[in-house]
């Protein structure tokens, strides 16, 4: 029982981790708390649903189209319409702007796709394979493999490419990065594109596990919780936080009550912020006068 619960927790935790990594990248580079991250997950799932099921394209083509559209959406909507006009306005107006954008996206989704919940089939077989005492579905193995691969690629990107280095520089000090010749607009655009693609991948992977509906974006709070658990602004923290959250949720669902699962998220978030606001890996937050 316990090992099964842990495995399920790690699998779903991997998805939370992916979304939280995108969320944290965006926070680090643009100092924006992405309050519409759940809606990015939602549109990822809806894009795949449209391209794959409605338009009947082959899975890999539909997936590629989904990721491309998500990236374009991240640039055109989040970067150009919300983030940039509010860049000089401070953190809270940007959060309010994103909440407005999230409401628009939710309403549009209800109008375009309807209020009903859809089931997104999984890419691989859903017949469980037995490994020792635990059952695992091929789709779940795919989730873990995809997560590890993406995080590996991101690591290489940040360490070994010019753009990745520019992004790290920007998150340390925007002004110093500008003085060193980093083109900040390119960094912002790249961050929103990559961050939105990561959320969309989250939606693609979560779709088969949950129902796809216009309120799906409420799970954005899970990536906030993952980021808070690991310490806001820390990329390794976001990964560990995501997996911890997945495991805690499954422990609550497995040993207490299934419908308390979401309560685990809220309680964890409030407890961590009340006791140790800097999370597991965060640096102490110094007040600026």
């Amino acid at each position: 029982m316990l090992s099964q619960v842990l495995v399920n927790g790690v699998v779903i935790g991997c998805i939370y981790a992916l979304i939280a990594v995108g969320f944290t990248m965006i926070y680090n580079a643009t100092e924006t708390v992405h309050f519409a991250v759940g809606e990015s997950v939602m549109i990822g799932a809806y894009f795949l649903l449209t391209f794959w099921i409605v338009w009947d394209l082959p899975y890999l083509v539909a997936l590629a189209l989904t990721l491309l559209s998500a990236g374009a959406f991240g640039y055109a909507v989040y970067d150009r319409m919300v983030s940039r006009p509010l860049m000089s306005a401070g953190l809270l107006p940007r959060v309010v702007g994103l909440m407005g954008m999230a409401a628009i996206m939710k309403g549009l989704t209800r109008i375009i796709w309807g209020a009903d919940a859809y089931h997104l089939p999984s890419a691989l077989s859903t017949d469980p394979v037995r490994i020792g005492p635990i059952f695992i579905v091929p789709q779940e193995i795919l989730i873990v493999v995809v997560t590890v691969a993406i995080i590996g690629l991101l690591f290489l990107f940040f360490q070994h490419t010019k753009l990745g280095t520019a992004m790290r520089a920007t998150s340390q000090s925007r002004r110093a990065a500008t003085l060193m010749g980093v083109n900040i607009s390119v960094v912002f655009a790249a961050t929103w594109v990559i961050g939105t693609i990561l959320s969309a991948i989250g939606g693609v992977l979560l779709g088969p596990l949950l129902l796809v509906d216009p309120d799906m974006g409420e799970l954005g709070i899970k990536s906030f919780t993952a980021a808070v658990l690991g310490g806001f602004g820390s990329l390794p923290g976001a990964i560990v936080g995501g997996i911890l959250l997945g495991v805690s949720e499954n422990l609550v669902a497995g040993y207490l009550r299934a419908d308390w699962q979401n309560a685990a998220t809220f309680v964890l978030m409030i407890t961590v912020l009340a006791i140790r606001p800097t999370g597991l890996f965060g640096k102490p937050d110094k007040a600026r006068v």
């Binding site: 509010l86 107006p93 909440m99 409401a103 628009i104 309403g107 549009l108 209800r110 109008i111």
Partner: peptide, 21 residues
């Protein structure tokens, strides 16, 4: 409808916070 209300509220929120905070 509910969905249009969501959209107009969101658009007003975004528009005002950018143009007339």
């Amino acid at each position: 409808s509910q969905s249009f209300q969501e959209i107009t509220n969101g658009a007003l929120l975004l528009g005002f916070i950018i143009l007339a905070p």
